[in-house]
């Protein structure tokens, strides 16, 4: 009997084997990606834990950054924390207001809306080192230097790398993160709530302020935390805008320079006089940085799920 093409194509054994094989291959790829994550994390945890101690995270290094017995990372933890905190003050209001405009006011088809969306999308893709150049060229060399001229400073107070400029650079960088997360949160608020509020005579602004924003708060918080966690690990944007290799004291003013966890990882990896000796503190620093970013991520996820549960019970 001559087999018809249909039977040879679909139900033949070879065909089922190849399908099975190729499916397995894609499964393997998925597994590999998970493996990359697991390998990096376990490697850091295993080698990082022995070097981690209360003394290490609470010490300001006096002279030798690379001596495992006396060095510490308190100024780096403080520096990273302050710079993301200052960043949040700037990025949250602007990001939230932009998202409010995009979801509540913007006519969907207008060219302005489209350009705003395209700009947000583009901002998210600008390389981090270009943000660093921007911070140097705009904030320090333009805004800062002119501020010094205006204030008639005899020395460069603002026209040099500092905490405020690094934070502002990071704020520009994380703006898309906040906008996207807030927009998602605003869209999830049921339209019925808005209509009910308007029907009761509230103005549009009042509706947004009293009804929509409180409902969307968890989503907004999540966006803020994601921005913080993203910014905490970034090094390239702060390289020329404020980070210091070494400072003997903690920063006290917005125009001070600061030390930073991520940059310290870079310094320990590349400048160490004896890489075997400094390896424990390097791993410990990486572990602290990862704990910080992941803790924030997990907090964001928890807030989100907690608020969702509350929302559901409201309905």
């Amino acid at each position: 009997m001559i087999p018809s093409p249909a039977t040879t194509d679909f139900r033949s054994k070879e065909f089922r084997y190849s399908s099975f094989f190729l499916t397995g291959l894609t499964g393997l790829a998925t597994f590999l990606i998970l493996a990359i994550l697991v390998v990096i994390l376990t490697n850091v945890v295993i080698h990082g834990l022995p070097g981690l101690s209360w003394r290490f995270v609470s010490t300001i290094p006096k002279k030798d950054l690379f001596d495992p017995a006396t060095t510490g990372i308190l100024p780096m933890i403080v520096g990273t924390t302050i710079r993301v905190f200052v960043m949040t003050i700037f990025v949250l209001p602007v990001g939230v207001i932009t998202a409010v405009y995009l979801t509540e006011y913007a006519p969907n088809t207008s060219p302005v809306t489209k350009i705003i969306r395209a700009a947000v999308n583009n901002l998210a893709g600008v390389p981090s080192v270009v943000f660093g150049l921007f911070g140097l060229g705009f904030f320090i060399n333009f805004v800062g230097k002119n501020l010094d001229l205006l204030l008639h400073n005899s020395y460069q107070a603002w026209g040099q790398p500092s905490l405020i400029w690094a934070s502002l650079t990071l704020a520009v960088m994380t703006l898309p993160v906040v906008i996207v997360a807030t927009e998602e949160a605003l869209k999830a608020v049921p339209p019925g709530l808005r209509e009910a509020s308007l029907a009761l005579g509230a103005t549009k602004l009042k509706t947004i302020y009293k009804i929509v924003l409180p409902q969307a708060l968890p989503g907004i918080l999540t966006g803020g935390i994601l921005a913080v966690s993203r910014a905490a690990g970034e090094v390239a944007p702060i390289l020329f805008t404020g980070v210091a290799y070494y400072m003997s004291s903690l920063p006290t003013h917005l125009t001070d320079q600061f030390m930073d966890l991520g940059y310290h990882v870079f310094v320990l990896s590349t400048q160490s006089p004896n890489i075997d000796k400094t390896q424990p503190i390097l791993y410990a620093t990486v572990l602290v940085l990862l704990l910080l970013t992941f803790a924030l991520n997990i907090v964001a996820i928890l807030i989100r799920s907690n608020m969702r549960r509350k929302m559901r019970s409201l309905h």
């Binding site: 998925t30 990606i33 998970l34 990359i36 994550l37 990096i40 490697n43 850091v44 981090s128 966690s229 993203r230 905490a232 690990g233 970034e234 090094v235 390239a236 991520g262 940059y263 990882v265 870079f266 990896s269 590349t270 390896q279 390097l282 990486v286 940085l289 990862l290 970013t293 992941f294 991520n297 996820i301």
Partner: peptide
Amino acid sequence: LKEIIKPAIEMLSGIPSVVVGFFALI
């Protein structure tokens, strides 16, 4: 499976690039 993979991918993208660089170097 999606519920496991998606957060895992999010975590992978959450690793700061300086840490990935450090891992590659060391």
